[in-house]
Design a protein around this nucleic acid. Structure first.
Lengths: 320, 320
DNA sequence: TTGTATGCGTTATCAC
DNA sequence: GTGATAACGCATACAA
């Protein structure tokens, strides 16, 4: 018991004894058994994090935000890759819940009904990130992908492009919502042509962007003067392909990407895109969780938090 | 006990009872407590992973490789970011060891003496990745950064560049070893000038590459005709800066990067760089661990594995 | 300030 | 094929 008190830095231990214990600990190389500790105290210092992809750079920044807050507070992160699959997500949630996590960070709002039920039943605080959820389980931090897609469409219209296409890969829920917002604006402006929407369920990449662009040009027989790419990787591929085709960007052809990766500012012409504060989403999600965890005394109801992180149009040279 | 047998899919349970138990489990939303299981069985299905950075794209691919093998086998990953600090790494190792992990994957060979002792004392199998270690704790998969740096220097010499510089950021152990290999070749060829070695301890980025390049040109007063960048991000920045300065790449100035990120093939001119199989390092490390874990019966000594994954020079248009 | 009894939810072992 | 019992290593509550 005295050892336990020393290990956990409890007050009320004689300093001589404390030092003796510490000496013994280092001498023996004693490492406390976390499982036993969790079992006895049901405090795990564990945060479960679910993201849909490890290859997408976007989640790097989010993860950094999460880790930068969690680790200094001595919390550990159990990270799962759901591969954009609600089924895998449900499985991961079940696994994590078995470890008595103190908080959960999950991406988006496409959980299965069972997953939602499990989470609610567990009483573990959750933050849904990366998207503005209509019906959040608990707290939510993100932005409206619909609005972002709409804003890009409006931007391209404002720059007097008229035959605007869309190139998308993976086509997960958030990408689809960007497309929906995009379509709604074009439709209202009476210049939506679905032939100009070219997508693939495959993962996105620069190469894929180039390939989809060729498809777009083939399908529309070149009758297209701008494109919104669902992310910057694709846009980079499109830009590369335009150069090969000797299509002048932005005069003959406008390009807008999404995410504002660092490289976007360094292409020639520099890429117009949409900036979203990924790191901030991760770090804030973690901060929200900590508030909940520390407020469990107050009727266990530190109120839910809903944050719209918005987005910013980065108008560079790839649009007129 | 019967429930435990059902949960763990043990044979020798009456099917009627098994089904009843399963029904009860779903009805109650019962989730087994992993801490208790680990405590009782000392089998955690946990793999500790230590990487030095989450922002470096390089580790994305490694992590994907690890997760792609670990998760389907029902193993979980406890991921720690050591921020290139052996002290943080030691702390993380201590924390992980407290969870009774079944395996460890750690980056490089710069562990503290205490960390090495703890790991060995724990008897947990370890794989050190990303580098060819002289004195590995256990198994090792990676490549020689010294050789890679040397190969780049030789390449640039072969392309008849003579005033070759080096641009490096972060300057972690592996980067330093690349620089050492690079220097050794230039030195042997009698054309090493340390004025042309420009580095910073700060993290690397495209912007940083551009900035270091300006420094290089200022320090050498333009007396430099090629540069090896310790990673592709920096190289991208250098390339961008060359264009601004109207320096013809590769005729007037040669550039070679490192890592072969996808974008390297899409710049203009396309970037010469060094390709290393990151995903493979991650997945193989995990596979090695599994072999050890499953072979614990055989005198607990599934022999150590040492794999040199090598590297490949990608000679593109940014070098003559 | 220190120590003792008890229980956390599983699994290993051995009876039945 | 099923169940009783005793750990696993720690923390809570309380006694000394």
């Amino acid at each position: 018991m005295t050892v336990s008190r020393v290990v956990n830095n409890y007050p009320g231990v004689n300093n001589n004894i404390r030092n003796k214990v510490k000496a013994a600990i280092t001498e023996l190389g004693y490492i406390p058994n976390r499982s036993a500790s969790v079992l006895a105290s049901s405090k795990s210092k564990l945060i479960g994090v679910l993201i849909p992809s490890l290859s997408n750079v976007v989640f790097n920044d989010v993860l950094r935000g999460i880790y930068d807050i969690a680790n200094p507070a001595d919390y550990q992160v159990l990270l799962f890759n759901t591969h954009y699959s609600p089924i895998e997500e449900e499985r991961a949630i079940r696994t994590i819940l078995g470890q008595s996590p103190e908080g959960l960070i999950i991406t988006g709002g496409e959980q299965t009904a069972i997953a939602r039920t499990m989470i609610k039943a567990s009483g573990v605080p959750v933050v849904q990130i990366m998207d503005k959820i209509e019906n959040p389980i608990d707290s939510n931090i993100g932005f409206s992908h619909f609005d972002a897609g709409a804003a890009v469409a409006q931007l391209l219209l404002d720059k007097s492009y008229g035959k605007i296409g869309f190139i998308g890969a993976r086509m997960d829920a958030r990408t689809c919502r960007r497309l929906a917002g995009f379509k709604s604006v074009l439709s209202a402006a009476n210049c939506l042509d679905v032939k100009r929407v070219v997508t693939t369920p495959q993962p996105s990449s620069v190469t894929m962007g180039a390939s989809l662009f060729r498809d777009l040009m083939a399908i529309t027989e070149g009758d297209c003067d701008a494109v919104f790419c669902c992310n910057d990787d694709l846009a980079l591929g499109v830009l590369h392909e335009c150069k090969k085709m000797h299509l002048n960007v932005p005069q003959q052809f406008g390009i807008c990407g999404f995410n504002d990766i660092e490289m976007a500012a360094y292409t020639e012409p520099a890429l117009s895109t949409v900036s979203v504060n990924r790191y901030h989403m991760g770090s804030t999600a973690m901060t929200i969780l900590f508030e909940k965890i520390n407020c469990e005394g107050d009727q266990d109801s530190a109120s839910e938090v809903y944050i719209d992180t918005g987005f910013e149009l980065m108008t560079r040279q790839s649009t007129r």
